[in-house]
Design a protein around this nucleic acid. Sequence first.
DNA 1: TAGTTACACTAAAGCGGTTTAGATTGCAGT
DNA 2: ACTGCAATCTAAACCGCTTTAGTGTAACTA
Lengths: 344, 344
Amino acid sequence: MAIKRVTMADVAALAQVSKTTVSFVLNDRPGLSAATRDRVLAAAEELGWTPSAAARTLSGKGTDTIGVVLNRPPRLTGIEPALEDYFQGVEREVSHRLISLLTRVVSSHEEELLTLRSWWYSRRVDGVILVDLRANDDRPSALRNAHVPVAGVGDPKLRNQLPVAWHDDSAAIDQVVGYLHALGHTRIARLSDRSVLSYAKIRNDAFEKSCADRRLSEQMVCPIEATAAAAAQTTRELLMLAKRPTAILYDNAVTAMAGMAVAQEMGIQVPRELSVVAWGGSQICNYTHPTLSAVEGDDLGLGMQAVRMLLSKLKGEDVGDGQCATPIFVPRGSTAPVARVNSF
Amino acid sequence: MAIKRVTMADVAALAQVSKTTVSFVLNDRPGLSAATRDRVLAAAEELGWTPSAAARTLSGKGTDTIGVVLNRPPRLTGIEPALEDYFQGVEREVSHRLISLLTRVVSSHEEELLTLRSWWYSRRVDGVILVDLRANDDRPSALRNAHVPVAGVGDPKLRNQLPVAWHDDSAAIDQVVGYLHALGHTRIARLSDRSVLSYAKIRNDAFEKSCADRRLSEQMVCPIEATAAAAAQTTRELLMLAKRPTAILYDNAVTAMAGMAVAQEMGIQVPRELSVVAWGGSQICNYTHPTLSAVEGDDLGLGMQAVRMLLSKLKGEDVGDGQCATPIFVPRGSTAPVARVNSF
DNA sequence: TAGTTACACTAAAGCGGTTTAGATTGCAGT
DNA sequence: ACTGCAATCTAAACCGCTTTAGTGTAACTA
């Protein structure tokens, strides 16, 4: 069963040169005649030689692998579509450079740090990407202490601690609030992921500020668990208020759908009596009924940017700022001017 | 910058023993005194030693890593939720065994085989999982020729070629058709993913058979691209037929949602005039309006099972059959008896 | 007392690459 | 003919771990 591997020595033997020469040829070192070079390459080709990643790493080269850990509760796969997109972006950027991605999903913070550190100490990765930077995140400093090269995507506040790919959620929120205000909405609610992820707080703050700037004093922020069930429940409560909101902002597409379904079930028409705004999920948003207005950001691009920053850092190059395109608000069928019936 | 790594030699020196002894202690070999054992462990602990994965691999141990490649078209992330679930399942099973997962997303079949083979040849993985077995798939044989240990999830027809985790889609389809038939439906359509993935064909065949068994002769199968847009378009065409179907089966939740939105837009009531059945997506299905009846399978479990089978194979154990729980039909708000208006 | 055996431990040879420090050769310069 | 030097190529050490084949000692037999 144990299949004989083709090693460098085999190639060297076939090409009638030393191992050193083979190594030099394959690393494009100068000082070899073209004839030898060709002979070695031909031999390698003929034997179908592939370098052993382990041997390479052991003799000081990197691993050409970077690590990503996703931290999420067990079995309860929350709805974090952006996270998936970041991950996809990381994947995309990494794979066309022939770098491998080591992944793990864990269910606690400790486990995550443990995994990241052990990957580094056991030399499985050259660096790691944090895809869900939190406010007051202790991972950057913990990893710095362990000398793990790291880049992240998310909260721009951490930019002084590590390279961060980020985009301006505040500006996006302001677009939405401005748009709704122009349509006559004054009572706007926002259902916000209550988790520790930074983006929720950033958006909440921006939301409060945007409303204040426009002298809309009846805004409300409801932190909820990021599930369709919680969104449905809270939406129901909001819509039963005497002075119910005329517009609700959600933090993702699935919760927005759930909210819309609740409204319909209660006989409240979307968008005539209630405007609904989602975040992300362009694919789905075009095929709900009515279609969902949403904020759309290039989350994929964020993941890609983070990888580029990490690789620059590994090469000792300058990393730069990492700001990506600001998400834009895409109005669709779920937003409309305030209906007369709703004004008091 | 180059940080001095703690190696086994350091541990050996501190514990005043040889490298061999350290190695024996850490691999739980017999023939060492408890005192020495403790001393070595204490030394390792004190220095914070972590074995080098590369060195380990190089000296013949495995890599404790398995590989998964996802093959999907670039930028056009089709809706293959089951695939994500398989992946999650693989991840889950792998991670609690402290095995790592190497991942890559590619956009072509060739690239996929290339990746898998190169991972194996460069000894980055101990084995690989194929998450989307196709009809007439050539990967099993290609990988067998390269001696790559492999297990897959999907088409049970390939069971004689490699360990496969699978579940009985046919039985699930029969449940649905039986249920609809009992409600009086005789004109049932099925919008099927037209890709090369096996499951579409398996379900199509089962669908034809289940209809035939019940003498429903007006069934139709429409192969479409697995996007919300294509589903919307085809649904529209179906609903414009003189003898339009009274029930439509979709291959996932997003296409079903798109179909339902089209019906509503055309003034056709769901479920009174049209029953809609989705596949998967329980999270979403409970929060559409109306809620979506759907077939639900444990795709996560399939991924987990595939990993178990691969690991058994690696250990030279018996692998077994790999059949998982049959998906079940969960009726919700989008299915109802045929309305009078539709009978001719 | 010598011979065997069990036990606790170790020296050294790999694994498959990279790299350092030469070794060899041919040829121009004097 | 002898030196100097660039151009090619190679021997051997090294990376950090595993494993084979011992070594040395104490206890047990006869």
